[in-house]
Design a protein around this nucleic acid. Structure first.
Lengths: 220, 220
DNA sequence: TTTCGTTTGAAACGTATGTTTCAAACGAAA
DNA sequence: TTTCGTTTGAAACATACGTTTCAAACGAAA
């Protein structure tokens, strides 16, 4: 405990509780009591609850952002000149995510759940913070997607990307619960990595769908 | 204002505010002040905040559930004996949703956003309430999906249905914001119906994807 | 018009939250 | 060992919440 291991204890506790219960539903007192730390420590070290939320995201998003950047570098290096395919882009994303160093066995679930919350519960301050700090790797991912789907109009691509994000964020943010339900139902155990491996072909097929806008089907 | 138009005023205000801000972030005082109604009226007419949330959902979910049931009846009547196709099931769902009677022009967005919140912010009491009251049309939809995708194993189907739900709930629950972003970006106006019409082929293609689990792509 | 159950209004209650205060404890530097 | 900036601890603060209370107002039935 060289210096302020209090800070890490708070971050660890906050990360888990935020992932379990969301931001508004997690009080500072829950966090400090789980972290076995004085209540005032949060405001002393982080300033406010909102800044603590930012710190929790920064701690895992900064290395993740760097990992992604490397993966995209590799991707572009491999396919010299021509645009990387959709499948390879999505796979690179899935692999980078799976390979993130985990603090414990629940690491990936927490990571995913927080990413989901970032979309879902983003109040003004969080959205602003994320846009300011991490727009670059996100923009790069978007550029790669654009080059990989030249057959789509800008509008088509826009909506399909939202569909992809939705399927991913939603599934991953509830991955723990969904895995449990499946096990109770069919008795099959599933890893987050397997979900990702199932998600990729689903998303790729959706992105490549021939029909852009569904017309009412005709009678049989 | 024959009898308790207070009840409807509360429901109207609560519906909008819940859709805009979520449940925990919307206080009874916000609701009663928007509804121009006394604070105590909520507890008098509904009992508690949780029961008010239930009432908001019941008001639109009960007619929606009936509409869905009719649409599924038609679907099964049309395709006498053989299972309705995936495209037709999804289309029936999208159409039923679009045709729901709206209280105002923002009706569909609110409706969608609440459905999204039901998945996303479902605390214990709401999940329990929804399961107890509306499991039947949901189960019927699942059965139809199963019959329309006999080529999928139970596990494959389970995950792909989650992906569909995610893409839909996520996109629709943010439809307002996404429509605004697209308009600011490309200057195109979009209706919720158009989003649904774009979503259907995306989901159908994903459900029918040949690969179930992605293997690492080989070098180019 | 009087009656009486229903509904509203204003105020308060108890509790929980984020934040602040300030004295005490700590720990490296002198 | 003394000093002094940093960190902790216990308590309080102001505020917001959901809920309750109870008298006043209402409105159909008598």
């Amino acid at each position: 405990m060289a210096q302020s291991d209090t800070v890490d204890r708070i971050l660890d506790a906050a990360e888990v509780l935020f992932a379990e219960r969301g931001f508004a539903e997690t009080s500072l007192r829950m966090i400090t009591s789980k972290a076995k730390v004085n209540l005032a420590a949060v405001n002393y070290h982080f300033g406010s609850k909102n800044e603590l939320i930012h710190a929790v995201f920064a701690r895992f998003l900064t290395p993740y952002s760097a990992t992604l950047d490397e993966a995209f570098d590799e991707l572009e290096a491999e396919s010299q000149g021509d645009a990387p395919s959709l499948d390879r882009i999505l796979w690179a994303l899935a692999e980078s995510t799976a390979r993130m160093p985990q603090r414990n066995d629940k690491g990936i679930s927490i990571f995913m759940r927080l990413l989901g919350l970032a979309y879902t519960q983003s109040q003004g301050h969080l959205r602003k913070f994320l846009e300011e700090e991490y727009s670059e790797p996100f923009g790069r991912f978007m550029r790669l997607l654009k080059e990989a789907t030249p057959e789509l109009s800008a509008v088509d691509r826009y909506w399909r990307i939202q569909f992809m994000l939705g399927a991913t964020a939603f599934t991953m943010s509830s991955s723990d619960a969904l895995i449990d339900i499946l096990e109770a139902k069919i008795g099959v155990e599933t890893s987050v990595q397997e979900i990702a491996a199932r998600l990729v072909p689903f998303l790729a097929a959706g992105m490549k769908a021939a029909d852009k806008i569904q017309q009412p089907p005709h009678g049989h």
